[in-house]
Amino acid sequence: MTAQVQQVQTKTGRLTAYKQDAADQININRRARPFDDFIRALLLLAGIVSILTTIGIVIVLGNETLLFIQQLTPEGEPAVTIGEFLATTEWQPVGYKFGIWPLLEATLMTSFVAILVALPLGLGAAIYLSEYATRQVRDTLKPILEILAGIPTVVYGYFAVTFMTPLLQAIGGDAVQFYNTLSAGLVMGIMILPTIASMSEDALSAVPRLLREASYGMGATKFETISKVILPAALSGILAALIVGISRAVGETMIVALAAGAGPNFTLPPNFLVGAETITGHIARISGGDLSYNSIDYNSLFSLGLALFVFTLLLNMLSRYISNRFREAYQ
């Protein structure tokens, strides 16, 4: 454009007239190109798909749960009440017994064992990597731990069945059944260890160096600095890691489907050496078979899914809330 203007200026001198023409052509106040608007709308549409996914999950789980509550036994009585669902200890779809506790207990038991393994070891590894290890060691070890996080859960399930369970049986003898919640929980602990380690390591490295130096300046040893200064400072990040770990343990399916058991089993006091089916394990087993739609079995799976969804959603939101508050503390 400028070149043209110069050309016009030198050749004819009718600059003013040309400027008028150019102003007609370039109107800065004109709306952006329609093509750009179209693209923008298309991209927004892509973003909306993720919202539709959430809405879809809520509607599907909610709708099927409503159908589940409305189901009647052959005698015409309600097949399940919310009270029965939340307060009884037998899950037998054939006999119209729908108490969530046997499944919930197994879920809590496997998750408890998993956290018992993953929290101390994961946090320990995080402290070692962030506070003790040299840069070289850290750069070698961290990717290796990340490999552990990338292994598919069905492979962990195989590990539980072919390694952990025989090991436990060799130690505990006949008391240990082939299916047991202990084996599933221990292997699940190994599975979530890298998650907890990596999130905790991030939290520990985010603690400002000033705090460490101040602590050394007061004459504290390295361990005292870690336990009394750094850990409290990183506590909310570590808590967030713990909660994400719990949420992953509760939602984990393949390990428990292979190793924990293939039938609901309520034990009081909890017996970790016998088989019991978790919420996720039950959903996987029942839907894996030939399931007819609109049967009460089918509907009941979605009510279990809803319970799982709400629980893990709350955990994840809590985890993000805690780590967001932590981030603000240092800015």
Binding site: S50, T54, I57, T280, I283, S287
Partner: peptide
Amino acid sequence: LERVIETNIRNLAGVPSIIYGLLGLAI
């Protein structure tokens, strides 16, 4: 809308995979 999309994606990342299975089965 933008804030909802952003938060929603973080939440979806934490949903257990088995829930996606139930969604896929129904839809």
